[in-house]
Design a protein around this nucleic acid. Sequence first.
DNA 1: CGGTGCATTGATCAGAATCAATGATCGTGG
DNA 2: CCACGATCATTGATTCTGATCAATGCACCG
Lengths: 245, 245
Amino acid sequence: MQYPLKDPIKRWSDSIPAPCAACGVRDSVFCSVLSDQELQRLSSFAFNVSQDAREIIFSEGDSADHLFNVTEGLVKLYKLLPDGREQITGFLFSGDFLGIAMNDTYAYSAEAITPVRLCRFNRKDLEGMFQQTPHLETRMLNMASNELAQAQDQILLLGRKTAKERLCSFLLSLSQRSERRGDSATVIPIPMGREAIADYLGLTTETVSRTFSKLKKENSILVSKGGIVEVPDLELLATLAEDSS
Amino acid sequence: MQYPLKDPIKRWSDSIPAPCAACGVRDSVFCSVLSDQELQRLSSFAFNVSQDAREIIFSEGDSADHLFNVTEGLVKLYKLLPDGREQITGFLFSGDFLGIAMNDTYAYSAEAITPVRLCRFNRKDLEGMFQQTPHLETRMLNMASNELAQAQDQILLLGRKTAKERLCSFLLSLSQRSERRGDSATVIPIPMGREAIADYLGLTTETVSRTFSKLKKENSILVSKGGIVEVPDLELLATLAEDSS
DNA sequence: CGGTGCATTGATCAGAATCAATGATCGTGG
DNA sequence: CCACGATCATTGATTCTGATCAATGCACCG
């Protein structure tokens, strides 16, 4: 569950101008469509900020003034009910964009699970850039489409899947993300704790833990130190994710 | 549960050119941003189609060649698991737009619950129109944002709410929709059956029915002939939707 | 008038939640 | 470097909500 920043000593103070050209995630889905010149314009209103684990980035209902790109660390997006029940609607890893689904106010809260670094954009500035850079808006629409498709998968999961199917679906999606980033599809680090997984899958920590144990016992997964899961048979996992017979 | 087309005799054959100017839903969220001239261009590749109840409009995985505007009737969007479990991800009423969340293929299936009329657009044509009409793309992004926020509400509902809270949330959203359309917020027609409600709320028909009965017994709602629900106290309903003590 | 499809209600079951205790891991400070 | 405390994960016992199985009721339609 350790996930220190690569440079843990020099904690960036708030709001340092962001040198897009030197950014580690400049090839992220969001920035990759921009030319060098456009990237330069972007950096004129982009600022790096960093936050410690458990710090809140923004809360549901706040005026939606900023959009972000996660450059390092892990973020959870979540909604709360009055009595404290929590539902995590998504996890953001480095390279992920934060701020698609919002109108005047944020529709959900965002909190750093690990220490994070963010590239923060002023919303008005970014929207202003759409005028000269319509393909940026096209990209945003594209991203929104993908988010929506993902949200619908999650709706299916929460509405109709069993605990086992949910956990397998979750592991599968982590595996696919890992693969997309060029890492192993079968050796998957799990950077969030059991409670976060439970709040994401609509379960309790106990059920998540028990389900992990079941999967271990039947050799569908192997769990090694540091919360790293190994999946010997991805096909099997995919089956279990839809049909946990 | 009756919901006949206003003109049930003359069933439109497939693909009749759509006269946008005379369209009953030209003020829908989708078309309302267009000038008369732009609307005319839109009609050049818009076709009216109609479908009977239970007819499938498209299936998950189909090549996403068309987008639609629902001009009359009720549509369900849903996803299936291999063993037949169904999760409805949304209902579309007349004026609603169909086709936001898609890439190359549809991410979900769409089926007519009642007889429907649709205005069908070729996707390539519509995307082509974005070039000359960037504010149409802005509108699409806006709609996608709203859809995403709605999807997240549904994720909270499915992940963390009780049966009673789910049903109250559902009635509340129907009430708000009714109000937005200029109809009564307290007298709500329920155009879909118990099974569809169950598949939308991640429950079974029996649980939906029982929960309706409970709400009736405690006088939170009144149900009259034709499946019309009356809500004497919207505030109370809103409370029950988040905190079914 | 009878049949078909949908809604309601009842009895029982099962999966996950809750309550409770123990165990493992990590960071801290002596 | 080890011991302690804190946090997090695991496991067990029991409860409870909603699912399942089953029967009856109701409304609309031919």
